Computed example of a mutant assay.
Amino acid sequence: MAEAGAAAGAADGAGAGAAGGRDGQLRSSGLRHGWTTGACATAATTAAYTALLTGEFPDPVTITLPKGQQPAFALAAEELTDRQAMAGIVKDAGDDPDVTHGALIRATVRHGEAGSGVVFRAGPGVGTVTKAGLPLAVGEPAINPVPRQMMRDAVAEVAARHGGSGDLVVEISVDHGEEIARSTWNPRLGILGGLSILGTTGIVVPYSCSAWIDSIRRGIDVARAAGRDHVAGCTGSTSEKVAVAVHGLPEDALLDMGDFAGAVLKYLKRHPVPRLTVAGGFAKLSKLAAGHLDLHSARSQVDKGYLAGLARQGGADEALTAAVAAANTGLEAVQLCAAAQVPLGDLVAEGARATALGVLRGSPVEVDVICIDRAGNIVGRAG
Protein backbone atom coordinates (compact mmCIF):
# COMPACT_ATOMS: atom_id res chain seq x y z
CA MET A 1 0.00 0.00 0.00
CA ALA A 2 1.92 2.82 -1.39
CA GLU A 3 1.34 5.69 1.02
CA ALA A 4 -0.81 4.51 3.87
CA GLY A 5 2.10 3.19 5.85
CA ALA A 6 4.98 5.53 5.98
CA ALA A 7 3.68 7.90 8.58
CA ALA A 8 0.86 9.26 6.49
CA GLY A 9 -2.73 8.81 5.60
CA ALA A 10 -5.57 10.58 3.82
CA ALA A 11 -8.08 9.71 1.18
CA ASP A 12 -8.94 10.34 -2.46
CA GLY A 13 -12.12 10.18 -4.42
CA ALA A 14 -11.60 11.96 -7.68
CA GLY A 15 -11.20 8.77 -9.66
CA ALA A 16 -9.49 8.60 -13.00
CA GLY A 17 -10.43 12.13 -13.90
CA ALA A 18 -8.56 13.82 -11.09
CA ALA A 19 -5.11 13.45 -12.56
CA GLY A 20 -4.12 12.72 -16.08
CA GLY A 21 -1.23 13.76 -18.27
CA ARG A 22 1.61 11.67 -19.59
CA ASP A 23 1.09 8.62 -17.44
CA GLY A 24 0.53 5.92 -20.05
CA GLN A 25 3.93 4.42 -19.32
CA LEU A 26 2.88 3.84 -15.71
CA ARG A 27 0.18 1.26 -16.44
CA SER A 28 2.23 -1.80 -17.38
CA SER A 29 1.00 -3.81 -14.38
CA GLY A 30 -2.62 -3.53 -15.49
CA LEU A 31 -3.42 -1.60 -12.30
CA ARG A 32 -3.95 2.14 -12.42
CA HIS A 33 -1.22 4.16 -10.72
CA GLY A 34 -2.05 7.20 -8.63
CA TRP A 35 -0.38 10.26 -7.17
CA THR A 36 1.20 10.75 -3.77
CA THR A 37 0.13 13.35 -1.24
CA GLY A 38 3.41 15.12 -2.05
CA ALA A 39 2.54 15.34 -5.74
CA CYS A 40 -0.94 16.66 -4.92
CA ALA A 41 0.48 19.25 -2.51
CA THR A 42 2.97 20.34 -5.18
CA ALA A 43 0.20 20.74 -7.76
CA ALA A 44 -1.92 22.71 -5.30
CA THR A 45 1.05 24.93 -4.41
CA THR A 46 1.80 25.55 -8.08
CA ALA A 47 -1.78 26.58 -8.81
CA ALA A 48 -2.08 28.75 -5.72
CA TYR A 49 1.20 30.60 -6.29
CA THR A 50 0.36 31.16 -9.94
CA ALA A 51 -2.96 32.70 -8.91
CA LEU A 52 -1.27 34.86 -6.26
CA LEU A 53 1.04 36.32 -8.92
CA THR A 54 -1.34 36.49 -11.90
CA GLY A 55 -4.87 36.50 -10.51
CA GLU A 56 -5.73 33.31 -12.44
CA PHE A 57 -5.69 29.68 -11.36
CA PRO A 58 -4.31 27.22 -13.94
CA ASP A 59 -6.84 24.40 -14.23
CA PRO A 60 -5.71 21.75 -14.86
CA VAL A 61 -2.31 22.41 -13.35
CA THR A 62 0.73 20.50 -14.58
CA ILE A 63 3.80 19.66 -12.51
CA THR A 64 7.06 17.84 -13.15
CA LEU A 65 7.78 14.83 -10.94
CA PRO A 66 11.29 13.82 -9.80
CA LYS A 67 11.63 11.29 -12.65
CA GLY A 68 10.35 13.67 -15.30
CA GLN A 69 6.69 12.66 -15.64
CA GLN A 70 4.31 15.60 -16.08
CA PRO A 71 0.84 14.77 -14.77
CA ALA A 72 -2.00 17.30 -14.83
CA PHE A 73 -4.38 17.78 -11.90
CA ALA A 74 -7.87 19.25 -11.89
CA LEU A 75 -8.57 21.77 -9.13
CA ALA A 76 -11.24 20.80 -6.62
CA ALA A 77 -11.12 24.09 -4.68
CA GLU A 78 -9.75 27.59 -5.20
CA GLU A 79 -9.88 30.90 -3.36
CA LEU A 80 -8.06 34.16 -3.99
CA THR A 81 -7.80 37.29 -1.84
CA ASP A 82 -5.45 40.27 -1.84
CA ARG A 83 -3.15 38.54 0.64
CA GLN A 84 -3.22 34.86 -0.17
CA ALA A 85 -4.37 32.13 -2.54
CA MET A 86 -5.64 28.61 -1.87
CA ALA A 87 -5.92 25.68 -4.26
CA GLY A 88 -7.11 22.16 -3.49
CA ILE A 89 -6.49 18.81 -5.20
CA VAL A 90 -8.40 15.59 -4.49
CA LYS A 91 -5.91 12.78 -4.17
CA ASP A 92 -6.29 9.87 -6.56
CA ALA A 93 -4.37 6.80 -5.38
CA GLY A 94 -5.29 4.83 -8.49
CA ASP A 95 -5.97 1.16 -7.77
CA ASP A 96 -4.00 1.15 -4.53
CA PRO A 97 -6.00 0.58 -1.30
CA ASP A 98 -4.55 3.76 0.18
CA VAL A 99 -6.27 5.42 3.14
CA THR A 100 -5.29 8.76 1.63
CA HIS A 101 -7.43 8.08 -1.46
CA GLY A 102 -10.06 10.81 -1.73
CA ALA A 103 -8.56 13.40 0.58
CA LEU A 104 -8.76 17.05 -0.36
CA ILE A 105 -5.21 18.39 -0.08
CA ARG A 106 -5.01 22.18 0.08
CA ALA A 107 -2.12 24.60 -0.32
CA THR A 108 -2.59 28.14 0.98
CA VAL A 109 0.21 30.50 0.01
CA ARG A 110 1.13 34.07 0.87
CA HIS A 111 4.20 36.22 0.23
CA GLY A 112 7.04 35.71 2.70
CA GLU A 113 9.70 38.06 3.98
CA ALA A 114 12.44 39.01 1.52
CA GLY A 115 15.14 36.36 1.41
CA SER A 116 13.15 33.83 3.43
CA GLY A 117 12.74 31.33 0.60
CA VAL A 118 9.96 28.77 0.94
CA VAL A 119 8.68 28.35 4.50
CA PHE A 120 6.40 25.39 5.24
CA ARG A 121 3.53 25.40 7.70
CA ALA A 122 1.23 22.60 8.87
CA GLY A 123 -2.39 23.53 8.36
CA PRO A 124 -5.41 21.63 9.71
CA GLY A 125 -5.09 17.90 9.12
CA VAL A 126 -1.30 17.86 8.65
CA GLY A 127 0.75 16.53 11.52
CA THR A 128 3.70 17.92 13.44
CA VAL A 129 6.82 15.93 14.34
CA THR A 130 7.13 15.40 18.12
CA LYS A 131 9.77 12.64 18.34
CA ALA A 132 13.36 12.39 17.17
CA GLY A 133 14.43 9.77 14.65
CA LEU A 134 12.44 10.94 11.65
CA PRO A 135 13.97 12.76 8.66
CA LEU A 136 12.50 16.00 10.01
CA ALA A 137 13.34 17.98 13.14
CA VAL A 138 11.02 17.95 16.12
CA GLY A 139 8.48 20.73 15.75
CA GLU A 140 8.52 20.67 11.96
CA PRO A 141 5.42 20.11 9.83
CA ALA A 142 5.19 16.48 8.69
CA ILE A 143 6.03 17.31 5.09
CA ASN A 144 8.76 14.93 4.02
CA PRO A 145 12.01 16.07 2.35
CA VAL A 146 11.21 15.03 -1.22
CA PRO A 147 7.79 16.74 -1.32
CA ARG A 148 9.42 19.84 0.18
CA GLN A 149 11.96 19.89 -2.63
CA MET A 150 9.24 19.29 -5.23
CA MET A 151 7.36 22.33 -3.89
CA ARG A 152 10.51 24.47 -3.75
CA ASP A 153 11.26 23.60 -7.36
CA ALA A 154 7.67 24.37 -8.39
CA VAL A 155 7.74 27.72 -6.57
CA ALA A 156 11.01 28.65 -8.28
CA GLU A 157 9.57 27.76 -11.69
CA VAL A 158 6.40 29.80 -11.13
CA ALA A 159 8.43 32.73 -9.79
CA ALA A 160 10.69 32.68 -12.84
CA ARG A 161 7.75 32.53 -15.23
CA HIS A 162 5.66 35.26 -13.62
CA GLY A 163 8.18 37.57 -11.96
CA GLY A 164 7.80 36.50 -8.34
CA SER A 165 10.45 36.61 -5.64
CA GLY A 166 10.11 32.96 -4.64
CA ASP A 167 9.80 34.01 -0.99
CA LEU A 168 6.65 32.20 0.03
CA VAL A 169 4.85 30.79 3.06
CA VAL A 170 3.22 27.49 2.05
CA GLU A 171 0.62 26.03 4.37
CA ILE A 172 -0.49 22.49 3.51
CA SER A 173 -3.72 21.14 4.98
CA VAL A 174 -5.84 18.02 4.49
CA ASP A 175 -9.57 18.02 5.06
CA HIS A 176 -10.42 15.53 7.86
CA GLY A 177 -6.71 14.66 8.03
CA GLU A 178 -6.56 14.36 11.80
CA GLU A 179 -9.37 11.82 11.76
CA ILE A 180 -7.84 9.83 8.89
CA ALA A 181 -4.42 9.82 10.59
CA ARG A 182 -5.81 7.68 13.40
CA SER A 183 -5.78 4.73 11.00
CA THR A 184 -2.10 5.27 10.10
CA TRP A 185 1.16 4.77 12.01
CA ASN A 186 1.63 8.49 12.58
CA PRO A 187 0.67 8.55 16.28
CA ARG A 188 3.12 5.75 17.06
CA LEU A 189 5.89 7.56 15.21
CA GLY A 190 5.20 10.75 17.11
CA ILE A 191 3.53 12.64 14.27
CA LEU A 192 0.55 14.29 15.94
CA GLY A 193 -2.35 16.35 14.68
CA GLY A 194 -2.80 14.83 11.26
CA LEU A 195 -1.26 13.20 8.24
CA SER A 196 2.15 13.32 6.63
CA ILE A 197 2.80 14.64 3.15
CA LEU A 198 4.76 11.86 1.51
CA GLY A 199 6.25 10.56 -1.69
CA THR A 200 9.66 10.01 -3.24
CA THR A 201 8.62 9.74 -6.90
CA GLY A 202 5.21 11.41 -6.83
CA ILE A 203 3.62 8.18 -8.07
CA VAL A 204 1.56 5.70 -6.05
CA VAL A 205 2.37 2.16 -7.21
CA PRO A 206 -0.57 -0.17 -6.48
CA TYR A 207 0.14 -2.64 -3.67
CA SER A 208 3.69 -1.35 -3.33
CA CYS A 209 5.75 -2.74 -0.45
CA SER A 210 8.07 0.26 -0.29
CA ALA A 211 5.99 2.48 1.99
CA TRP A 212 5.39 -0.28 4.53
CA ILE A 213 9.08 -1.11 4.62
CA ASP A 214 9.91 2.58 4.96
CA SER A 215 7.54 2.77 7.94
CA ILE A 216 9.32 -0.16 9.57
CA ARG A 217 12.63 1.64 9.16
CA ARG A 218 11.23 4.89 10.57
CA GLY A 219 9.81 2.93 13.51
CA ILE A 220 13.26 1.54 14.30
CA ASP A 221 14.77 5.02 13.95
CA VAL A 222 12.24 6.46 16.40
CA ALA A 223 12.80 3.63 18.90
CA ARG A 224 16.57 4.15 18.74
CA ALA A 225 16.24 7.91 19.12
CA ALA A 226 14.04 7.34 22.18
CA GLY A 227 16.74 5.14 23.72
CA ARG A 228 14.75 1.91 23.52
CA ASP A 229 16.85 -1.21 24.04
CA HIS A 230 14.08 -3.66 23.13
CA VAL A 231 11.73 -3.63 20.13
CA ALA A 232 9.14 -6.10 18.88
CA GLY A 233 8.41 -6.94 15.25
CA CYS A 234 4.85 -8.24 15.11
CA THR A 235 2.88 -9.75 12.23
CA GLY A 236 -0.43 -8.27 13.38
CA SER A 237 -2.42 -6.64 16.16
CA THR A 238 -3.00 -9.87 18.12
CA SER A 239 0.70 -10.76 18.28
CA GLU A 240 1.44 -7.14 19.16
CA LYS A 241 -0.87 -7.38 22.19
CA VAL A 242 0.86 -10.58 23.26
CA ALA A 243 4.30 -8.99 22.94
CA VAL A 244 3.16 -6.08 25.10
CA ALA A 245 1.67 -8.44 27.69
CA VAL A 246 4.82 -10.56 27.86
CA HIS A 247 7.44 -7.83 27.78
CA GLY A 248 5.64 -4.63 28.81
CA LEU A 249 6.94 -2.70 25.82
CA PRO A 250 5.90 0.91 25.18
CA GLU A 251 4.12 1.85 21.97
CA ASP A 252 7.17 3.35 20.27
CA ALA A 253 9.00 0.03 20.65
CA LEU A 254 6.41 -1.82 18.56
CA LEU A 255 7.12 -2.39 14.86
CA ASP A 256 4.21 -3.27 12.60
CA MET A 257 6.25 -5.87 10.74
CA GLY A 258 3.37 -7.47 8.86
CA ASP A 259 4.83 -9.88 6.31
CA PHE A 260 8.15 -8.05 6.04
CA ALA A 261 10.33 -9.93 8.50
CA GLY A 262 13.33 -9.45 6.24
CA ALA A 263 12.92 -5.68 6.28
CA VAL A 264 13.03 -5.62 10.09
CA LEU A 265 16.03 -7.90 10.32
CA LYS A 266 18.08 -6.26 7.56
CA TYR A 267 17.54 -2.76 8.93
CA LEU A 268 18.35 -3.87 12.49
CA LYS A 269 21.56 -5.43 11.21
CA ARG A 270 22.69 -1.97 10.07
CA HIS A 271 21.01 -0.06 12.93
CA PRO A 272 21.01 -2.47 15.89
CA VAL A 273 18.82 -2.39 18.98
CA PRO A 274 20.05 -4.66 21.81
CA ARG A 275 16.97 -6.91 21.85
CA LEU A 276 14.35 -7.95 19.31
CA THR A 277 11.20 -9.93 19.94
CA VAL A 278 9.61 -11.49 16.86
CA ALA A 279 5.95 -12.26 17.53
CA GLY A 280 3.45 -13.71 15.11
CA GLY A 281 1.02 -16.38 14.12
CA PHE A 282 2.32 -19.92 14.02
CA ALA A 283 1.80 -20.34 10.27
CA LYS A 284 3.64 -17.13 9.35
CA LEU A 285 6.53 -17.86 11.68
CA SER A 286 6.79 -21.39 10.30
CA LYS A 287 7.64 -19.71 6.98
CA LEU A 288 10.33 -17.66 8.70
CA ALA A 289 11.64 -20.85 10.31
CA ALA A 290 11.85 -22.41 6.84
CA GLY A 291 14.00 -19.49 5.67
CA HIS A 292 11.42 -17.18 4.06
CA LEU A 293 11.84 -13.48 4.82
CA ASP A 294 8.65 -12.35 3.03
CA LEU A 295 5.74 -14.00 4.81
CA HIS A 296 2.95 -12.95 2.44
CA SER A 297 0.82 -15.84 1.20
CA ALA A 298 1.43 -14.83 -2.41
CA ARG A 299 5.19 -15.15 -1.97
CA SER A 300 5.69 -18.00 0.50
CA GLN A 301 3.64 -20.98 1.65
CA VAL A 302 3.45 -23.06 4.81
CA ASP A 303 5.59 -26.13 4.11
CA LYS A 304 3.78 -29.13 5.65
CA GLY A 305 6.68 -31.41 4.81
CA TYR A 306 9.01 -29.12 6.76
CA LEU A 307 6.61 -29.14 9.71
CA ALA A 308 6.37 -32.92 9.56
CA GLY A 309 10.17 -33.13 9.71
CA LEU A 310 10.24 -30.86 12.74
CA ALA A 311 7.53 -32.95 14.39
CA ARG A 312 9.58 -36.08 13.84
CA GLN A 313 12.59 -34.37 15.43
CA GLY A 314 10.37 -33.50 18.38
CA GLY A 315 9.39 -37.12 18.96
CA ALA A 316 6.34 -37.60 16.74
CA ASP A 317 5.67 -41.18 15.66
CA GLU A 318 5.02 -42.10 12.05
CA ALA A 319 1.26 -41.68 12.35
CA LEU A 320 1.53 -38.19 13.80
CA THR A 321 4.25 -37.24 11.32
CA ALA A 322 1.96 -38.29 8.47
CA ALA A 323 -0.95 -36.40 10.00
CA VAL A 324 1.13 -33.23 10.21
CA ALA A 325 2.20 -33.61 6.58
CA ALA A 326 -1.46 -33.95 5.58
CA ALA A 327 -2.78 -31.19 7.85
CA ASN A 328 -5.10 -28.64 6.28
CA THR A 329 -3.38 -25.70 7.96
CA GLY A 330 -0.32 -24.95 10.03
CA LEU A 331 -2.58 -24.34 13.00
CA GLU A 332 -4.04 -27.84 12.68
CA ALA A 333 -0.50 -29.23 12.62
CA VAL A 334 0.48 -27.50 15.85
CA GLN A 335 -2.77 -28.57 17.51
CA LEU A 336 -2.20 -32.21 16.55
CA CYS A 337 1.28 -32.05 18.01
CA ALA A 338 0.18 -30.28 21.17
CA ALA A 339 -2.33 -33.05 21.85
CA ALA A 340 0.51 -35.57 21.61
CA GLN A 341 2.87 -33.40 23.70
CA VAL A 342 5.20 -32.83 20.76
CA PRO A 343 6.56 -29.25 21.01
CA LEU A 344 6.10 -28.25 17.38
CA GLY A 345 5.41 -24.63 18.37
CA ASP A 346 8.71 -24.35 20.23
CA LEU A 347 10.56 -26.00 17.35
CA VAL A 348 9.11 -23.52 14.88
CA ALA A 349 10.03 -20.64 17.22
CA GLU A 350 13.57 -21.99 17.43
CA GLY A 351 13.76 -22.24 13.64
CA ALA A 352 12.44 -18.69 13.23
CA ARG A 353 15.00 -17.45 15.72
CA ALA A 354 17.78 -19.24 13.84
CA THR A 355 16.70 -17.60 10.58
CA ALA A 356 16.62 -14.20 12.28
CA LEU A 357 20.08 -14.62 13.77
CA GLY A 358 21.36 -15.75 10.39
CA VAL A 359 20.18 -12.50 8.80
CA LEU A 360 21.57 -10.43 11.66
CA ARG A 361 24.88 -12.30 11.27
CA GLY A 362 26.62 -11.32 14.46
CA SER A 363 25.04 -7.90 14.98
CA PRO A 364 24.64 -7.12 18.69
CA VAL A 365 20.94 -8.01 18.76
CA GLU A 366 19.48 -10.66 21.07
CA VAL A 367 16.41 -12.36 19.60
CA ASP A 368 13.46 -14.14 21.13
CA VAL A 369 10.42 -15.48 19.29
CA ILE A 370 6.78 -15.89 20.34
CA CYS A 371 4.38 -18.00 18.24
CA ILE A 372 0.65 -17.63 18.83
CA ASP A 373 -2.57 -19.15 17.58
CA ARG A 374 -5.45 -17.09 16.19
CA ALA A 375 -6.89 -16.53 19.65
CA GLY A 376 -3.62 -15.06 20.90
CA ASN A 377 -2.55 -18.10 22.92
CA ILE A 378 1.18 -18.70 22.99
CA VAL A 379 1.94 -22.01 21.26
CA GLY A 380 5.72 -21.72 21.02
CA ARG A 381 8.67 -19.71 22.32
CA ALA A 382 12.39 -19.58 21.80
CA GLY A 383 15.25 -17.47 23.14
Results as ranks from 00 to 15, higher is better:
Lys287Glu: 03
Arg217Gln: 13
Thr54Trp: 05
Ala6His: 15
Lys269Cys: 12
Phe57Gly: 13
Ile213Lys: 15
Ser300Glu: 10
Val273Asp: 02
Leu276Phe: 03
Asn328Ser: 12
Glu240Ile: 10
Ser173Ala: 09
His176Pro: 02
Thr36Met: 01
Ala253Met: 04
Ala4Val: 06
Pro250Arg: 09
Arg32Tyr: 03
Arg22Trp: 12
Leu285Asn: 01
Tyr49Asp: 03
His292Gly: 01
Gly127Met: 04
Gly102Asp: 03
Ala16Thr: 04
Arg275Pro: 06
Gly305Tyr: 13
Ala107Gln: 02
Thr64Ala: 00
Gly163Ala: 02
Gly30Asp: 06
Gly117Ser: 06
Ala72Phe: 00
Thr64Asp: 09
Ile89Arg: 06
Ala142Lys: 06
Leu285Gln: 03
Ala39Tyr: 00
His101Gly: 05
Lys266His: 15
Leu331Phe: 12
His292Lys: 09
Arg228Tyr: 08
Gly258Cys: 11
Val205Leu: 01
Gly55Arg: 02
Ile378Gln: 00
Val348Phe: 10
Ala16Cys: 07
Arg110Glu: 09
Thr128Gln: 06
Tyr267Lys: 02
Lys304Gln: 03
Ala154Ser: 10
His230Leu: 08
Leu285Cys: 02
Pro145Val: 04
Ala279Gly: 08
Gly194Gln: 04
Gly358Ile: 15
Val244Gln: 15
Ala245Pro: 13
Ala137Asp: 14
Gly383Pro: 10
Asn144Tyr: 15
Arg381His: 06
Asp368Glu: 15
Ala211Gly: 07
Glu157Tyr: 02
Ala232Asn: 14
Gly190Ala: 10
Arg270His: 00
Arg224Met: 14
Ser297Arg: 08
Arg224Asn: 07
Ala154Arg: 00
Asn377Ala: 12
Gly383Val: 10
Ala319Gly: 06
Ala232Gln: 11
Arg106Gly: 11
Ala85Gly: 09
Leu136Gly: 00
Ala316Pro: 05
Ala39His: 06
Gln341Tyr: 12
Val359Cys: 12
Asp92Tyr: 01
